[in-house]
Write a protein that binds this DNA or RNA. Structure first.
Length: 208
DNA sequence: GGGCTGATTTGCT
DNA sequence: GCAAATCAGCCCG
């Protein structure tokens, strides 16, 4: 079964102990897996953004350490989950090294496992019917909703049993793809840094 | 397909 | 109080 394969190919701690831009780039095509009591959901990462250090005006760490952004100063490989806009959770992977606040935001997922569960969680309106599969997690807020990720997972290790990122086995990998590098989305400061990456042509990218 | 707008909570000024 | 690493609904074409 694919889930067992994925569990055996978790990214090692060293993967996260590197420059954030490298990590954001290399996360593309990896598989994010979330195991909750109600079931398993997983998808290919197709869009990421880097937020790097206290000098990056768009990074939450810009204004210094607060209870909310504390996880960014933690060990690389932790999940930094935060709440914004009154409705939405966001998932990041902590990068670089402990005591240095940096993270890669996961912005888009191409659904792979647990499609029914994702539809159930993302159900908007009984009358409207199901959204297309590629729209289940094509955005950072939707991604968390589809996988059942909430603040309860903030500070969890991304090598845990509940939430982890894995290198898919060759037979389950995304077909070869090109990467587009561009500026970040949804921010009001630090808009010049081209720290967003996505899989060219993939429909689960939030905006092209 | 694209543009505009209200929703709704948390954390910090 | 207000801004926020957003989303969905509604209108238009």
């Amino acid at each position: 079964m694919l889930l067992a394969e994925l569990q055996n190919h978790k990214l090692p701690a060293e993967f996260y102990q590197r420059p954030t831009l490298e990590i954001a780039l290399e996360l593309l095509g990896k598989v994010l897996v979330c195991v909750r009591p109600e079931g398993v959901a997983a998808g290919y990462i197709v869009e990421t953004e880097a937020y790097i250090g206290q000098d990056d005006p768009a990074c939450h760490a810009y204004k210094g350490l607060t209870p909310r952004n504390k996880t960014m100063w933690g060990e690389p490989g932790l999940a930094y989950v935060y709440f914004t806009y009154g409705n939405h959770w966001m998932l990041n992977t902590v990068t670089e090294r402990a005591d240095y606040p940096a993270a890669a935001l996961l912005r888009g997922l191409q659904p792979l496992l647990g499609l029914d569960l994702m539809h159930q969680r993302r159900q908007l309106d009984q009358l409207k019917g199901k959204p297309a599969d590629y729209k289940l997690a094509n955005g950072p807020g939707k991604l968390c909703q589809a996988l059942g990720i909430t603040g309860a997972l903030n500070g969890f290790s991304l090598q845990s049993e509940e939430l982890f990122i894995a290198n898919p086995p060759a037979e389950a990998a995304l077909p070869p793809f090109e990467v587009v590098q561009t500026t970040r989305i949804g921010i009001t400061r630090g808009m010049d840094s081209p720290w967003r990456y996505y899989v060219a042509g993939n429909k689960s990218v939030s905006k092209t």
